[in-house]
Design a binder for these strands. Structure first.
Lengths: 336, 336
DNA sequence: TTGAAAGCGCTAACAC
DNA sequence: GTGTTAGCGCTTTCAA
């Protein structure tokens, strides 16, 4: 038989007091006499008593658990995000339930469902690339569950946000390429339904404008994974002859591009300079080391958890959603 | 005011039936008439009814949640493990709570605590490098919570295990180095309290024996992170003059070593060949591409979740702990 | 200073 | 075919 964990009433029975007395003693309620409290606490400790989080949650309607949804844990940016969230949450007495949408809309909807079923107190979400319909998020907010959008967000949903200054980051990176002498810069872009996709493109575009360079449609490609890059390989190699710089929306794509170019004999950065976005650890492992825009994943995670918990614990403080923008600075290495 | 989620009794009240009828109707209990069931289901759907997982868990003493503890999500191997676990768990109707110990013993103990508080049905654990005392795991088993050790395990705790054939993998990798002509192979090892650390060393050793090469103590170093490698840099460069091969316990260390050697002008693999362990994605990004032992993280994750759920749902089937060993095959690339 | 009772949402044994 | 009741573990009025 399964030896069920010690409960408050087990302790009460054993000590000949009532469950309420035990409950109060354990949380240092002033009404309980020094003596009883001592007895109870000692016995609880001895029995290895631990409060049942399920019962606590059911009773208090607060689970002290935050739900997190990210596209994929394997990506360094998202795992640092999670570390930040976890560290802050734990320090404030919260637990975290993590889900991956695997960039799949259906799965994201299921994730939300599961987290709500578990009565998480709030949600931290970086939604999937596929997500175009945001009604599942609207439902969350209608149910008054506080939610923070991380990194990726959309205008339709008015909620707290923690984002990188994608526009600025992209602009700085592109400017850097231009300053190095690039005139024809290929932009490997994310889908334009993603805010980060648009912003990074706009930053790129703005840099061109400020330097009086033309925007060439043919030099803006939707290509944000190594797989897509491989699929576009032939086309890219044709373009390569005409370009002298590449700005990619993330480091994996930047590096795949760099390696494709290297294989075909293009020198980097002398013939074509390459810049990425995200400062993934692989940026320093590849040769030449990748020049890229730094994103503060860990800090963003912490900040988002802080905002969420703030809303949970002091709902009155601030009512209108706020957006926290993290600056993006350029890390200049060898590739550009 | 917070609009509380629809409960079974909300539905019962609205429809003028009893809660038990609603409960039964929703789970297609045969006693309930077609008509009532229809009415109830329709209304529940309309109200967006969702069962409260906390109440369910409290009532049934089963949370349908698995607890997972890994050292660090950022490592590719562990995030693939998690993906495997999640996919299988979701397909069987289980949720997953993920914790990171950050290779910290204290935190691991807290993680276990938190997961038990949440009444997870079972545990999947890859414990931290620091962990030398296993009493927290013993407590888990004494409480009859099924647990599976993943990747890392210890002999003291008799429980299900899912591991890589570290010995074989290390032996094959070392043999490969020897076949290429290496005679003096440096082994960058993990701590020997970790089973994987010992096994990989033993595999290395066995390969030396089988090829009648001497084991040189000076060529076995405890060095399993880039940080440690940097700290040992000077010593390593002295050794480098005398060696012709390196077998590192993981890919990050292998690559850091490779880059250190390259910076100092050692040609790879012609002057010194390098092999790693794990087949991290960076292995194909670095130049020369890293020869390394493949580890099936995703499959191991799936298998471990399968074993755990099996024990939860059919506790009678098998009583003695079993160990599932995944073969480790060598992925030969350019570095060796 | 302590206890009794009710209720968070749900289900199952036992009525009827 | 449906309702009543009790209880999972906990806290919190209210009463003593």
């Amino acid at each position: 038989m399964k030896p069920h964990p010690t409960s408050i009433s087990d302790i009460a029975r054993a000590l000949g007091v009532s469950p309420s007395t035990v409950s109060r003693a354990l949380k240092d309620h002033p009404d309980i006499s020094e003596a009883t409290r001592g007895r109870i606490k000692a016995f609880a400790k001895e029995m290895n008593y631990r409060p049942n989080a399920l019962a606590l949650g059911l009773r208090s309607q607060r689970s002290y658990t935050l739900g997190v949804i990210v596209p994929e844990i394997v990506h360094h940016f998202f795992s640092t995000l999670i570390s930040g969230i976890e560290d802050l949450a734990y320090s404030k007495g919260y637990r975290v339930m993590i889900c991956q949408s695997t960039e799949d809309y259906q799965r994201e909807v299921l994730n939300i469902q599961a987290l709500l079923d578990h009565r998480v107190d709030g949600l931290l979400v970086a939604f999937s690339k596929q997500t175009l319909d945001f009604s599942h998020f609207k439902t969350v907010l209608e149910n008054q569950i506080p939610m923070v959008f991380l990194d990726r967000f959309c205008k339709e949903i008015e909620t707290d946000r923690v984002v990188t200054d994608d526009f600025q980051g992209a602009k700085v990176a592109t400017n850097h390429l231009i300053k190095r002498g690039c005139r024809k810069i290929l932009h490997l872009a994310a889908p334009q339904n993603l805010h980060i996709g648009r912003e990074r493109f706009e930053g790129y575009h703005q840099a061109l404008i400020e330097n009086e360079l033309p925007l060439d449609d043919r030099l803006v490609l939707h290509c944000d994974t190594s797989a897509k890059l491989r699929a576009l390989q032939d086309h890219l190699l044709v373009l390569a002859k005409d370009i002298d710089g590449v700005f990619a929306v993330n480091d994996f794509t930047a590096i795949s591009m760099m390696q494709l170019l290297q294989e075909k004999g293009f020198e980097i950065p002398s013939r074509i300079a390459v810049a990425g976005f995200g400062d993934d650890p692989i940026a320093t492992i590849v040769r030449p080391q990748l020049t890229t825009v730094q994103q503060k994943g860990y800090e963003m995670g912490k900040e988002s958890a802080r905002m969420l918990i703030q809303r949970l614990e002091k709902p009155e403080t601030q009512t209108t959603p706020s957006t926290r923008v993290f600056p993006a600075s350029l890390k200049i290495r060898e590739s550009a």
